[in-house]
């Protein structure tokens, strides 16, 4: 058949998931943007507070914090989901083999709690965003 050719590599390739998993794409993209937003925000806060002795109540710092807050939503969901997976040894993952899950039993209530916990953590985070936005900008 001849030599093989490897088309992998390059950040643009993360877009391949778009065909079947938009959530995964949003996760990947938000993380990449968040890396730069975190660095910019962290440096801006430190520089304002320590170097320029400026006020941290300025609108640009608050806007940066809000951007970071919004982007962190994806990470909050992912970390909560990972924490639940680790705590439950992966038994309540929605992607685990269905026949294994039904054969091995387990409390349906615990399953519901595990499924709901990442959403609850994300909801609390989003409420926080709304609250801080209202406090700073309205």
């Amino acid at each position: 058949m001849g030599e093989s050719i490897d088309t992998r590599g390059g950040e643009g390739r993360i877009a391949r998931v778009l065909g079947f998993d938009t959530g995964a794409f949003v996760h990947m993209l938000a993380y990449r943007v968040l890396i730069f937003a975190s660095l910019a925000t962290g440096i801006a806060i430190l520089a304002t507070a320590l170097l320029f002795q400026g006020s941290l109540e300025s609108a640009y710092i608050e806007a940066l914090v809000l951007v970071v807050w919004a982007l962190f939503t994806v990470e909050v969901y992912a970390v909560a989901k990972a924490a639940v997976l680790i705590a439950s040894r992966g038994r309540f993952s929605p992607d685990l083999n269905r026949s294994f899950v039904s054969a091995s039993g387990g409390s349906p209530w615990l399953g519901l709690v595990c499924a709901g916990a990442p959403y609850a953590a994300t909801a609390a985070w989003v409420i926080g965003f709304a609250a801080i936005f209202a406090m700073w900008f309205l």
Partner: peptide
């Protein structure tokens, strides 16, 4: 692993590799 979870969505056998990786991280 960045825990995008796409691997587990396509696994035809319900292996859930994304969960396995988080368990390894733990």
């Amino acid at each position: 692993c960045e825990f995008a979870g796409a691997c587990s969505k396509v696994c035809p056998k319900g292996v859930d590799p994304a969960a396995a990786i988080q368990l390894l991280k733990g």
